[in-house]
């Protein structure tokens, strides 16, 4: 299976939900314990302070296991050098996409500063994954509006709308051809509904691993195990965990 939403430790910046530090070896041991073959590893420090150094650190982390770990860096979109940093992330550091967290980083998806960033990302075969599920800056409708401005760029809703906006996230995924939905922290009943109604090739799964107080990432292991209780079919499970993420990553490059 491919876990489409995990994080590095917060090495420099996080003061809430930072979890314990861990190395790439320990992270791969967690993946093995949960049956995860590949993981998308998203920037963590960069969400609090989007520096090139944060992307360098991420690249070094995933570089330890290039066949198991896939890195998504970040930028602050209002910085003038953001498009150039996205180009560096993808074409020099070997990262595969951009993670944005609009409410944590403090910008709106409607800001035009995002356009040159998305253009570089699309030209480089990258993927955009955004936090979603939380007003005022991270709703599925807002992220879908950005996706419509960049129809050749795959855009992923990183949390499937969470508890209170999952119906909006689902509707946006259905009506937006280049929008995908990652079930991650989404409640089980909503996950089941998303899997039954979204285009079957568009649903992904993530654990949000990396924030735990234990290197073994206990909650992430539990989230994988919990899928057994969702009441979904074997076909839905395989598509979400294997076929869909594999196809999306293959299409990106």
């Amino acid at each position: 299976m491919i876990d489409f939403h995990t994080h590095t430790p917060a090495w420099r910046t996080a003061s809430w939900l930072g979890g314990v530090p861990f190395g790439a070896d320990e992270f791969v041991a967690f993946m093995d314990s949960a049956g995860i073959e590949q993981a998308l590893v998203l920037s963590h420090d960069g969400l609090f302070d989007a520096t090139p150094e944060a992307n360098d650190d991420l690249a070094a982390f995933v570089g330890r296991y290039p066949r198991r770990l896939i890195g998504f860096g970040t930028v602050h979109p209002r910085r003038a050098d953001a498009p150039a940093e996205v180009d560096r992330m993808l074409n020099r550091l070997g990262l595969r996409g951009l993670k944005l967290h609009p409410w944590l980083q403090g910008f709106s998806m409607h800001e035009l500063a995002l356009d040159p960033i998305c253009e570089v990302l699309a030209q480089s075969g990258g993927i955009l994954l955004s936090h979603d599920g939380t007003p005022p800056y991270s709703t599925g409708g807002q992220i879908a509006a950005l996706a419509r401005r960049h129809p050749s760029l795959p855009v992923v809703l990183g949390h499937g709308g969470l508890h209170d906006t999952w119906r909006e996230a689902l509707a946006a995924t259905i009506e937006t051809p280049n929008l995908y939905i990652c079930i991650c922290g989404t409640p089980p009943y909503a996950a089941r509904e998303i899997l039954s109604r979204a285009p079957s090739h568009k649903v992904l799964f993530g654990t949000d691993a990396g924030l735990s107080d234990r290197k073994s990432q206990d909650y992430a292991v539990a989230r994988v195990a919990e899928i057994d209780g969702w009441g979904i079919s074997d076909e839905q499970r395989r598509a979400m965990l294997v076929d869909n993420p594999r196809a999306l990553l293959a299409a990106g490059r």
Partner: peptide, 15 residues
């Protein structure tokens, strides 16, 4: 319940 997987909710507290 019924929004969750009850066994997972209990397991988490037991763990």
């Amino acid at each position: 319940a019924p929004y969750t997987v009850p066994s997972s909710e209990l397991r988490r507290v037991l763990d």
